[in-house]
Amino acid sequence: MTFKLIINGKTLKGETTTEAVDAATAEKVFKQYFNDNGIDGEWTYDDATKTFTITE
């Protein structure tokens, strides 16, 4: 399955996707992406659209 990440950061904005077997696996991938890029904020997940959103 394809999961999308929408980034609404102070310095970084955009979208990316990842292929994962489930939302929990995608969450781990995206959290690592947050850490690697110094993004910290509030994030949500919409199961209907398989979209994670992080807002700094």
Rank of each mutant, 00 (worst) to 15 (best):
T44S: 12
K4Q: 05
E15A: 08
T44R: 06
E42V: 14
M1T: 12
N35L: 15
D47A: 12
T53Q: 04
D22T: 03
K4R: 13
I6R: 04
G41S: 04
K31G: 03
T49Y: 03
K28R: 12
M1W: 12
E27I: 10
A48P: 05
G38I: 12
K13I: 11
N35T: 12
D36Q: 11
K4G: 03
N8I: 14
I7R: 01
L5E: 03
N37R: 14
D40P: 07
K50V: 03
A23P: 07
G41H: 09
K50T: 03
E27R: 08
Y33I: 11
I6C: 06
T25V: 05
F3L: 01
F30W: 03
I54D: 00
K10G: 09
T44Y: 09
D36E: 12
E19F: 15
K28P: 01
F3I: 04
I6M: 04
A24N: 07
W43P: 02
L12C: 15
F30N: 01
D47T: 06
T55F: 06
T18I: 15
E42W: 10
D40F: 14
F3K: 02
T17V: 07
I54P: 01
Y33N: 03
F3P: 02
F34G: 14
W43Q: 01
F30Y: 02
T51K: 01
I7P: 00
G14T: 15
D47M: 06
T53V: 06
T16W: 15
E56A: 08
D36F: 12
Q32R: 10
Q32S: 12
Q32H: 06
N8C: 14
D47H: 09
Q32W: 04
Y45S: 00
M1L: 11
Y45K: 00
D22H: 02
G9K: 09
D47L: 04
K31D: 01
Y33W: 15
K13P: 06
G14A: 13
E27D: 03
E15S: 09
E27A: 09
T18Q: 04
F34K: 10
K28T: 08
V29Y: 14
I7Y: 11
K13G: 06
E27W: 14
N8E: 09
T44L: 07
F3D: 02
A24G: 06
G41R: 04
D46C: 06
K28G: 06
F30H: 00
E19D: 09
G9H: 08
A23H: 07
G41K: 04
G9S: 10
T44C: 09
G41Y: 15
A48Q: 10
E19Q: 13
L12H: 13
A24P: 07
F52W: 05
E19I: 14
I39V: 08
K31H: 06
E15M: 13
D46Q: 03
I6N: 03
T18V: 14
E56F: 13
T44N: 06
I39W: 12
A23F: 09
I7Q: 01
T11I: 11
N37M: 15
D47F: 06
G38N: 11
L5C: 15
E27V: 04
A20G: 03
G14I: 15
I6L: 05
D36H: 08
K28C: 08
E27Q: 08
E42D: 11
I39G: 05
E56L: 15
F30K: 00
E42P: 05
A24Y: 09
D47C: 04
L5D: 02
N37T: 13
T17I: 10
